[in-house]
Design a protein around this nucleic acid. Structure first.
Length: 816
RNA sequence: GUCGGCGUGGCGGAAUGGCAGACGCGCCAGCCUUAGGAGCUGGUGCCCGAAAGGGCGUGGAGGUUCAAAUCCUCUCGCCGACACCA
């Protein structure tokens, strides 16, 4: 016998491919639609198949996989599907870069590559349910849903000034414009163009989208706040101001502060407001035209900047303040947006910061109508808070909140105005002038106008030829479905966010040839129990999906009104301070990982590296720590003798009773933390268990039932994180059947209970001693034990405690 | 500017009113040796001390409480979202 114990180690490259093959052969993650088990729908946001999959992206999928594997072992029928957000511009851009390669070819290649890498990482999906949005079998139903929107009056065409990205050569939705720049090109400013475009009437659902956020109590608060702000509901009133000398016209304004109506000292129209020309007097016409021209030319980013001074010009026209009959000047200024409210405002400089700034610049009158509660700096700044009305005729003396209602009542009864609710949310512009997307299924006929493509003629197939659709004659030249005469197809495609607004429903019945999804199956699986993905979709994808869900609910196609019960936003993996990506050259590929430390080590490391919601920095040293842990587990489970032979435990010896207790405690904590997606601490608990098992062996513990239980429990608890090495150990332990199909260990509270606890003894809140006592000690016994301590008596300095705080099994605090 | 989040050892982090620093990385000392980027043992917040022990300590300042990393107020710093929406 050698003086040194023999040690084996596991070689991930030998076992990982083996088990990946077996899982697929045995259909481990296949979801049955007719299982009697309770369902669990575990969804990760499907990716764009960019061909750039790194261990950074993997983190998200590992989280989903850990949960899926545990839920299966717990007896749930788990739906854990995957798919590809396969339409979109990067495919076209990449194709162009690579000399006319077809976007489809590029996409299909990347999908194959991504799928191979996910399998290599041991992520299990029900691949039978895979969807790719660029396949006719999928986009046929995207088109079908567009027709549903059209039927329900939720899709319409309108001429509008729209955001145009000069690089992508397409229009963008409001949600895709960030600080006046294209969301895909942060250095490219969007342009405004007047175009006839397709919109979805998401604003019809503004109230429900807002109110139902209250139901989403398992969503991050941050996301709910962002959506609330995005929808931006405000309560106010629309009021008509007569125009001096134009008896047939009024300026209709929107205000959230009808209580300040008496303080309106001028009006402001947006430069694009239709009444500008009419109101402007001859004397001012030239200057106003010049200003309007100027405003139109300015980019969104210049116009929206709050830094810059407000500008405007007087029209020469006057309005009458309907409250007090005062004649007030009408101005044009670009700080008023034509797209919000009525495109015109009453300016109350005393109580609106922006109006105050403008009034100061152009020397316009300022009248205070709200007395601030205390002495407020007079006229140094606008006072926007509540207060008592002054200078407001019959409404003087009212609290502003009361005045709000009274004035609205008066406006309504006298026909001058009415209460009104406005939203910041705009309708969703879905037209894209690009090739690689789902064609909008309508035809324009010279006689019948816009005609929807009949459902039985779907899909409207993309032509093979890769060109803007408007340049593919064989595509757009068609017959009118109504009259059969020559007609022209719509050549815009749909925003890819439409594809992703319903993909989670398609997974319920991915092969249905007659409808987008089978309602019965969708009702079985929906809503998604856990949805995991990046916070960058906090508004876009998540708001659109909620909108779709509500429309589909209203159409009677699905019961649920919200798609995602619990949402989690995972943090990104960075390396050298930047998000991993192939183009930056800082990515670690899944191949590299699998070939070096192995997928299992990588999976655990990604979970252990930091809190799941935080961004984390990849470190090879940290990864090595996990490799060591796995090697140690391997030896603990399969070669305990080699560990027992190493040194002797000098620290706390772990006996069989303590080992059983540690195992039971670990079951409880790991289960809870997996459930709450607190993976980093779950790993720490598993490490603690392994440490205790090691101490047990080194202390001479026998290979008895306690040990056997510890080994089997450790392997099971570790399995969701490290499934390959888990299966291999399970097999070598002589177990029949797959570990993936084994049952999850049950938590036994009685076994986990500690019979002895360390009671912290404080005097006046300061730690003075620690006593080992029986659990569940009564207060009287605890006091007796505490007073028996020399240190405590010294701290009490001979006195006796006048106040005692006792927290059973934790602490006793004696206050003299 | 507004809203939100976060500040804890050399590092990642743990503890959500009750022993601050679990778990891991790194580092230090030692052991073993088939000499290894392996394994094992012990140590590792800061200060005083030979030690026993004591004091201090969760960005800063106050406060609430028997007790605060945790709750409150102010403040500084970092990050994120929104940004003239009347």
């Amino acid at each position: 016998m050698s003086s040194r114990p023999r040690r084996s180690s596991y070689v991930p490259q030998e076992i990982e491919p083996k088990w990946q093959k077996i899982w697929v052969e045995r259909g481990v993650m296949k979801a049955s639609d007719s299982s009697p088990k309770p369902k669990f729908y575990d969804l990760v946001m499907y990716p764009y198949p960019s061909g750039d999959l790194t261990v950074g992206h993997l983190r998200n999928y590992v989280m989903g996989d850990v949960l899926a594997r545990m839920k299966r072992m717990q007896g749930f029928e788990v739906l854990h599907p995957f798919g590809w957000d396969a339409f979109g511009l990067p495919a076209e851009n990449a194709a162009m870069k690579r000399g006319g390669l077809h976007p489809r070819t590029w996409t299909v290649e990347n999908i194959a590559k991504g799928k191979r890498e996910l399998k290599m990482a041991g992520i299990l999906y029900d691949w039978d349910r895979e969807v790719a949005t660029c396949e006719p079998d999928y986009y046929r139903w995207t088109q079908w849903l567009f027709l549903l929107m059209l039927e329900r009056g939720l899709a319409y065409r309108a001429m509008a000034p729209v955001n145009w990205c000069p690089v992508d050569k397409t229009v963008l939705a409001n949600e895709q414009v960030i600080n006046g720049r294209c969301w895909r090109h942060p250095d490219v400013e969007v342009e405004k163009r007047d175009l006839e475009q397709w919109f979805l009437k998401i604003t019809n659902y503004a109230d429900r989208l807002l109110d139902d956020l209250a139901l989403l109590d398992k969503w991050p608060q941050k996301v709910r706040v962002m959506q609330t702000n995005w929808i931006g509901r405000s309560m106010g009133a629309e009021v008509d101001f007569p125009i001096d000398g134009l008896p047939d016209e009024v300026v209709r304004i929107y205000t959230t502060r009808p209580d300040t109506l008496f303080g309106a000292t001028f009006m402001v129209l947006a430069p694009e407001h239709p009444l500008v020309e009419k109101i402007t007097t001859e004397k001012h016409r030239a200057r106003v035209r010049e200003y309007v021209e100027q405003a139109r030319k300015e980019s969104e980013i210049e116009r929206m900047s709050t830094e810059r001074d407000k500008t405007g010009v007087a029209t020469g026209g006057f309005a009458i303040n309907p409250m007090n009959g005062e004649k007030i000047p009408i101005w044009v200024a670009d700080y008023v947006l034509v797209t919000y409210g009525t495109g015109a405002i009453m300016a109350v400089p005393a109580h609106d910061e922006r109006d105050f700034e403008f009034a100061g610049r152009y020397d316009l009158p300022i009248v205070q109508v709200i007395a601030p509660p205390a002495e407020h700096g007079v006229l140094r700044e606008a006072y926007e808070g509540p207060g008592v009305l002054v200078n407001s005729g019959p409404f003087n003396g009212l609290e502003s909140a009361v005045a709000f209602e009274k004035i609205c009542d008066w406006l309504e009864s006298s026909g001058i105005g009415k209460r009104s609710v406005k939203y910041r949310l705009r309708d969703w512009l879905i037209s894209r002038q690009r090739y690689w997307g789902a064609p909008i299924p309508v035809v324009y006929c010279p006689d019948d106008g816009m005609v929807p493509v009949p459902r039985e003629q779907l899909p409207v197939m993309l032509p093979e030829e890769y060109k803007p659709l408007s340049e593919v004659e064989s595509f757009w030249r068609t017959k009118c479905p109504k009259c059969g005469r020559d007609a022209r197809r719509e050549t815009d495609t749909m925003d890819t966010f439409i594809d992703s607004s319903w993909y989670f429903l398609r997974y319920a019945s991915p092969h249905d040839k007659t409808q987008p999804f089978d309602s019965e199956l969708a009702n079985h699986w929906m809503p998604v129990d856990q949805y995991t993905g990046g916070v960058e979709h906090a508004i876009l994808h998540l708001l659109y999906s909620r909108f779709f869900m509500k429309v589909l609910h209203d159409a009677g196609l699905v019961d649920a009104t919200e798609p995602f019960t619990r949402l989690f936003n995972q943090g990104m993996v960075k390396r050298f301070g930047q998000v991993m990506s192939k183009s930056l050259g800082n990515g670690v590929s899944i191949d590299e990982l699998a070939n070096a430390q192995g997928a299992d080590a990588g999976r655990i490391y990604e979970m252990f590296i930091g809190p799941p919601e935080e961004d984390v920095e990849w470190s090879d040293a940290g990864l090595n720590g996990v490799v060591k842990f796995l090697q140690r587990v391997w030896r603990l489970v399969l070669e305990p003798e080699s560990i027992a032979a190493e040194g002797g435990a000098l620290g706390a010896a772990v006996d069989a009773v303590a080992l059983r207790r540690k195992v039971a405690q670990t079951v409880g904590k790991v289960t809870e933390h997996y459930d709450e997606l607190r993976f980093n601490t779950a790993v720490a608990f598993l490490m603690e268990l392994a440490n205790a098992m090691q101490d047990y062996l080194r202390g001479g513990g026998a290979r008895d039932a306690a040990w056997d239980g510890a080994v089997h429990t450790l392997v099971k608890l570790l399995n969701p994180l490290a499934p390959h090495v888990g299966e291999e150990m399970w097999e070598r332990l002589g177990e029949k059947g797959l570990l993936a199909d084994a049952s999850w260990p049950a938590f036994e509270a009685s076994a986990a209970a500690e019979p002895k606890v360390v009671l912290v003894v404080q005097v006046s809140g300061k730690l003075r001693d620690r006593l080992e006592v029986d659990a569940g000690l009564s207060e009287a016994d605890a006091v007796r034990a505490a007073l028996a301590s020399e240190k405590v008596r010294a701290a009490l300095d001979g006195g006796s405690p006048s106040k005692i705080i006792y927290v059973q099994d934790r602490l006793i605090n004696l206050v003299p």
